[in-house]
Write a protein that binds this DNA or RNA. Structure first.
Length: 356
DNA sequence: AGTATTTGACCTAT
DNA sequence: ATAGGTCAAATACT
């Protein structure tokens, strides 16, 4: 399985995956506005289609690359309602109404991502956002530490999106990435400003160590992302130079249980009204919007979180397909009249990070 | 020089 | 009290 067939196959998978991811991003973004059910439903349908297409491909298609995973995807719906906000809900679950969802229950979903060292798919998994790590911690039963990231532009743009990356205990190529909150920063930046490499990749390369919180008080050498492995506990030095991710989404329920999507697959078509919660991301109330006019590429905006090389690779990873990048420039003005875009200083990105 | 990451301390919710 | 999450000073990188 080398040759053309496989190549096409991979390309197809790649394209579909990208489409799915972008759709997910869009959906995620929508969450920060006030999506109508119809809108969300449509997106779910689209995602469902991608999902099925991928499934078909991977199951029936060339046996090559993607056999390991049974990757299905399905979309996450929802975060959770914040009790404070909307009326209580339409939940089917026995809502533990109590203080459980106090704080910031935001749109939360988990994306299971795997590193497939087999095929040569370029990692479609750059979520296109710029993340900054702010913590790492060993979690109770987990072998590997969980890493915490927040949007790089939290302060500049008041973007409160965060994500956690947790490597799977058993399958070293699997990562669970839990996103919380929708980006209020990126939309245009995703398309105009090259995003830095995704942290998952960093996780992959580093983080075999256990230099953490009291665990090993003796700090291991500082791992710099994407640079040298620091011997020691690198479990996996044969990780290929470039690997790829295959995302799998999962539904979340109130807590962090997500349902393997396989369980949901069949329901993807007839989920008429099952999904009905919506919430308005708190971030929305803040004052950040996107510039509608920033589709123009800004060549020399310098993101500090990624160097040029990273930028390029990140960028190509989304657009490198022969078919031509599916990366669509979302034109906010066409999305929804309700969107408010406006943020002149978007152009002047640079790092404003110190002040905290 | 300015930033990003590391990592122990601190905080918050169970 | 404890686990998970976050902060922030120290450190590393560019």
């Amino acid at each position: 399985m080398e040759s053309v067939g496989t190549w096409q196959y991979n390309t197809l998978i790649n394209e579909l995956t990208q489409g799915m991811e972008k759709t997910n991003q869009l959906r995620s973004y929508l969450w920060s506005t006030s999506p109508s059910e119809a809108q969300d439903f449509m997106l779910q349908k689209i995602l469902s289609s991608y999902d099925k297409a991928l499934l078909i491909l991977k199951w029936g298609g060339s046996n090559g690359a993607a056999t390991l995973s049974t990757p299905e995807t399905s979309v996450s719906v929802h975060g959770s309602l914040r009790s404070e906000d909307l009326n209580k809900s339409v939940n089917d679950n026995q809502d533990n109404m109590n203080a459980s969802k106090k704080r910031k229950m935001q749109h939360t979903w988990t994306e299971r991502v795997r590193v497939d060292s087999e095929n040569g798919l370029e990692g479609p998994t750059d979520d296109g956002f710029s993340w900054r790590k702010y913590g790492q911690k060993y979690i109770l039963g987990a072998k590997y530490p969980r890493s915490y990231y927040r949007c790089t532009y939290r302060h500049v743009q008041n973007c409160w999106a965060t994500k956690q990356v947790q490597r799977s205990d058993d399958d070293l190529t699997m990562f669970d990435i839990t996103y919380k909150g929708s980006h209020t920063c990126n939309l245009s930046s995703t398309n105009t400003v090259p995003p830095p490499a995704s942290p998952e990749k960093q996780e992959l390369k580093l983080n075999y160590g256990h230099n953490l919180q009291g665990q090993h008080s003796e700090a291991l050498p500082y791992f710099k992302n994407s640079l040298s492995y620091s011997t020691e506990d690198l479990v996996n030095e044969e990780m290929p130079a470039h690997f790829s991710f295959q995302p799998t989404f999962a539904f979340h329920d109130e807590e962090n249980h997500y349902f393997p999507t396989s369980a949901l697959l069949d329901e993807n078509h007839h989920q008429g009204g099952t999904i009905s919660q919506h919430l308005i991301s708190p971030a929305t109330s803040e004052s950040n919007y996107f510039s509608a006019s920033t589709h123009v590429r800004i060549p020399n905006v310098q993101h500090s979180e990624a160097d040029t090389a990273d930028i390029i690779s990140a960028q190509t990873s989304t657009t490198n397909s022969p078919i031509g990048g599916m990366e669509f420039l979302i034109d906010p003005t066409n999305l929804d009249p309700n969107f408010a875009f406006n943020m002149p200083e978007f152009f002047t990105y640079s790092n404003f990070e110190h002040g905290q």
